[in-house]
Amino acid sequence: MARVISVHRQRDHQFSKSPEQQITLIAGEGVQGDAHRGQTVKHRSRVARDPDQPNLRQVHLLHEELLDELRTQSFRIHPGDIGENILTRDLALLDLPEGTLLRIGEQAKLRITGLRNPCRQLNDFAPGLTDAVLARGPQGELVRKAGVMAVVENGGVVKAGDAISTELPENGKPLEPV
């Protein structure tokens, strides 16, 4: 069964996020008390281009299986280190189509908007990490493994151990970076 392993937030614009007992999701905005919360984009590079664009990156979800993979490559990496708000287990996040709804815990509902595009800050955290979260698919296409981004459809409290269920869209498209 898909579940939440840990939750994180960070008030300031820092790369890593601090572990929390629980986080509160706010509909249309993101994680209460997190620097990326808001209806319009909060990532600094995107704000510089257009501060009025909608925030499609309110919540970052990452699969714990990626951390397992990175540890086999000798990376010392822990939950929250690469900026995720919600760390999951037993959920193939990267295989879900755009628009998938994730129901977490008793009330929270997220809609997946796209892939996290790995940035240079990964290498600042650990040299070689950017390359480690990228791969090539069967046709040579770039595969981004650094998790998915979502918007909050329905708010609620999320904590470790919460179950996650999925509702696939009728005509879901493959995920693209957002």
Rank of each mutant, 00 (worst) to 15 (best):
Q21P: 09
G155D: 02
L93T: 06
G155N: 01
C119L: 13
L91K: 12
P127Y: 00
A48W: 14
V157N: 02
I77F: 05
I104Q: 03
A126R: 12
Q73I: 00
L61S: 06
L168F: 10
E167I: 13
R49F: 14
G105A: 03
T100D: 02
E64R: 09
R71P: 03
G28H: 12
T24V: 08
A146H: 02
R71D: 12
M149F: 15
P177K: 04
T130C: 10
G140S: 06
L62N: 00
Q32Y: 07
R89S: 12
Q14F: 13
L91T: 00
P97M: 09
I5F: 11
I112W: 15
S18D: 15
E20A: 14
L110Y: 00
P118G: 09
V152E: 00
P169W: 12
E65K: 04
L134I: 07
R37Q: 10
N154G: 09
G114R: 14
G105E: 05
A27T: 12
L134M: 05
P138G: 13
S165P: 06
G99Y: 11
G80P: 15
H78F: 14
G172N: 06
L61I: 06
P51C: 05
G147V: 09
A132V: 00
A146R: 04
A146S: 06
P177C: 02
N117S: 04
Q14L: 11
N171W: 01
R3N: 11
V47K: 12
G33T: 13
T24Q: 07
G83D: 09
A132H: 12
Q58P: 13
D52T: 15
K145F: 07
A126D: 06
V158H: 01
V178G: 04
G140H: 03
G172Q: 03
R116F: 07
G28P: 11
H78W: 15
V4Q: 05
L168S: 00
L110M: 00
I77A: 05
T130Y: 07
A132G: 00
R144L: 14
L101P: 04
G114L: 08
H60T: 10
I164S: 00
T24S: 07
T130A: 02
T166R: 14
A2T: 01
G161F: 08
D50F: 09
I86H: 05
R136H: 10
T72R: 10
G156I: 09
A27L: 07
D131Y: 01
R76I: 14
K109P: 07
G137E: 04
R44H: 13
A35W: 15
G156E: 04
I26H: 02
D68L: 14
G33H: 06
G30H: 05
H63D: 11
K42P: 08
L142S: 11
K145C: 12
L101K: 02
K17R: 12
Q21K: 15
V41L: 10
S6W: 13
P169H: 10
P51M: 12
I23G: 01
T24N: 10
L56G: 03
G161S: 11
Q73W: 06
V143F: 06
S74C: 14
L122R: 09
C119P: 11
M1I: 09
Q121K: 15
L66D: 03
G161Y: 13
T130D: 03
A160E: 07
T72M: 06
P174H: 03
A132W: 05
H36N: 06
L67Y: 15
S45R: 13
P169Y: 05
N117F: 02
N117D: 14
G172C: 10
F15N: 03
A2M: 09
L129D: 01
A48V: 04
P169D: 02
